[in-house]
Amino acid sequence: MEASILVIQLLNGLQLGILLFLLSAGLTLTFGIMDFVNLAHGALYMLGAFFCATLTIYTGSFLLAVAVAIPLTALAGYILERLVVQHLYHRDHLDHVLATFGLILCIDTLVHLIWGPEGIAIPLPEILNTQVEIFPGIVFPTFRLLIIGMGLTAAAGLYLLVNHTRVGMLIRAGASNRRMVGALGVDISTLFSGVFALGAALAGLAGMLIAPITEASIGMGSDIIITTFVVIIIGGIGSMKGAFLAALIIGLIDTFGRSFLDDIFKIFMSGEAAETAAPAVSAMLIYILMAVILAFRPQGLFPPLTR
């Protein structure tokens, strides 16, 4: 019994971690390569969810909807980059923060305008809306397994792209030396737009994967973006490897904190005190972890070498 809960929570934590990685990967790319802080990254996550919701309702197929919504979100990212973001690269971080905060307000309101104030649930196809017996006696929702699978696939694809392709080489070179990439005769502004769109697609994918569980809603991006920041702060800003590991750590710790902390607290305090303290501490757990890690390593666990 205990063991089965443990396994299930482990998988839940893994699933959250994977989603956080998809989000933090995009931020890491835009920060690492363009030195750009994008608060509106969460808005792209939300857009992905809404695109997917509408498409699922129209096409009747969730998977088809995802396949169409990913390029759509990338396109949205591309347009944002061309319209606003591009003009901010040479500005300081304060300007990045303010302008992308403005973008959040705009996108949130536009979503409100188009889709209305209510959240939209995404119906899952029958095949996915089941449970699988992964170990004898331990069942786990098929869809959550799919999230883990798709997330890991995306992570692997990203790894291959960055480490084994020409584009990836440019990306890596761009992260360590912007001018050099320019000197290689690469059209920097196209590369930047492409990277931004890629980040948007990854964030959008995360939104599409979570929406069938939580539903697509306004504000979903603003909530998750801070957790994503915690991930990349802990991982070391600009480091893809750091983002991946920190995302898994945060996913697991957050999930375990919420499910087991009151039991742990009950070991050394009264039941009532534990019931009060546990939710507060578990809500703050990842931030406390961040504080502790930063106290010892101000640059995070795996700061990129080039900075």
């Binding site: 801070i226 915690v230 702060i233 507060a280 809500a283 703050m284 931030y287 961040m290 640059q299």
Partner: peptide
């Protein structure tokens, strides 16, 4: 102890920590 983007994000995260702390005070 940090600067730039790190500082922005960390202050943001700490602020949000207090938000969640108050939310959890039933």
């Amino acid at each position: 102890r940090t600067r730039g983007v790190n500082f922005i994000m960390i202050t943001m995260a700490f602020g949000q920590m207090m938000f969640y702390a108050i939310v959890s005070l039933e």
